[in-house]
Amino acid sequence: MTGPLIELKGITRHYGSGEALVRALDGVDLAIGKGEFVAIMGPSGSGKSTAMNIIGCLDRPTGGSYRFNGVEVGTLDQDQRAILRRHFLGFVFQGFNLLPRTTALENVELPLIYKGQPRAERRARAMDALARVGLQGREHHSPAELSGGQQQRVAIARALASEPMVILADEPTGNLDTKRSVEIMELLVRLNRDAGLTIVMVTHEEDMAAFASRLVVFTDGRVVRDEAVGERVG
């Protein structure tokens, strides 16, 4: 299969109707190839989060075509999208979104449970993923016992564990100080460069966007800028 991994064509997403109609996305065309590291920026309300939700198959577009790996997924139902997320997508959120009072290991195992992997295999993969983000020895800590940067690493490990094709990161450094933010970005860059993982990241910080290889800027539900950016060496 050649061609882009993620291909949005004329995507619209409308909320409400009549007078109150909101065009969160108003005809977005965007193609992201395998192995790219794309940063999405834009003012709040520009539609960048909506676009992320649609790319992440958490939401469905009102109109247009969304092909993932060559397959039309914009029309899939909720459970079909869940299965797609389970196998091909990994999420990293601003607020980490780890299960409280649950160890790092168990948090990372979570997507693997839904993939139906046996316990022993799950454990091994989760340990491996935690090692990849540099959290060996912290497997049995609960989120409350970890720093913000460590929690975000657990979240990245969780996204990695199911061996996805794409990692979708929604403001991954929004809750972290500059030092931790840079560490997280360096981790993402390494995963992108070494493992060839496709990464799509929403951010509002220029400094963080600079880690990506491509910058896409949204305004009023449309892509207004799309350019390659210089990669900073981690």
Partner: peptide
């Protein structure tokens, strides 16, 4: 929400 995001079906 987390469970649904990582791929749990309804």
């Amino acid at each position: 929400g987390i469970r649904l995001a990582v791929g749990a079906e309804a």
